[in-house]
Amino acid sequence: MSETLIRLTVEPLTAEAFAPFGDVIATADAQRHFTINGGNTERYHDLARIDPGPDGRAIVSIFRGQPRRLPFTVEMMERHPLGSQAFVPLSGGAYLVVVAPAGNPPGVEDLRVFLARGDQGVNYACGVWHHPLLALDGVSDFLVIDRAGEGPNCDEVRLDEAGVIELGD
């Protein structure tokens, strides 16, 4: 990897901006929602396409992420070629989402960085490149829905050039 660090721009996480990479999981008036349980609960319905792939099954886990310090250097990416992977924050803290389109291993120029609020989850579509968990505000728990089944479902690559994430300017 070269010694040059490419500065990455951080964008707000919106459903429109994130659409090429998967789904934003959040309660919003634009989402289909309706009252259930005798009027006591508002159900926000079908917020993400969970894809366990052929011969897979959806599983639910909790990931506990240690906070990352900024500036943070992005040197690697991973993908899950056989199924989607959803992250829903449980601790309420902001976190970063680094993604690149599915397909060939990404370069730093392919990366997009989103700042997710503590009330927004993401569902990475099958094969989308992403960085592992980037919690910001302390130890953070995430409900994770992904695939269990036969076959290798995690590819990792090192970037030829690193990217650096900074906030606050």
Rank of each mutant, 00 (worst) to 15 (best):
P89L: 07
G56L: 00
G93D: 06
P81A: 07
S91H: 02
R49C: 04
D46G: 02
P52S: 03
G93N: 11
Q31R: 15
T27I: 10
L96Q: 12
F63Q: 04
I50P: 00
M76V: 03
N37E: 05
G38V: 06
Q66E: 15
I50L: 15
P67W: 03
H80K: 11
T27P: 00
D46Q: 14
I62P: 00
P71A: 07
P67H: 03
R68W: 01
A30N: 06
H33G: 10
A48Q: 01
V88P: 01
Q31I: 01
R57K: 13
H45K: 11
G93A: 10
D29F: 10
L82M: 11
Q85D: 04
Q85W: 07
A58C: 08
M77S: 06
R79M: 11
G38I: 07
L47H: 09
F87Q: 04
G39W: 03
H80R: 13
A30F: 05
L90F: 05
A48P: 08
G65D: 15
N40P: 00
G65H: 14
G65Y: 09
G53C: 08
P71D: 03
N40D: 11
A28C: 07
V74C: 00
Y95L: 03
A28N: 08
L90V: 11
T41K: 08
R43A: 04
M76G: 02
A28K: 09
R49N: 10
L70Y: 06
S84F: 04
R79H: 11
G38S: 04
R79Q: 15
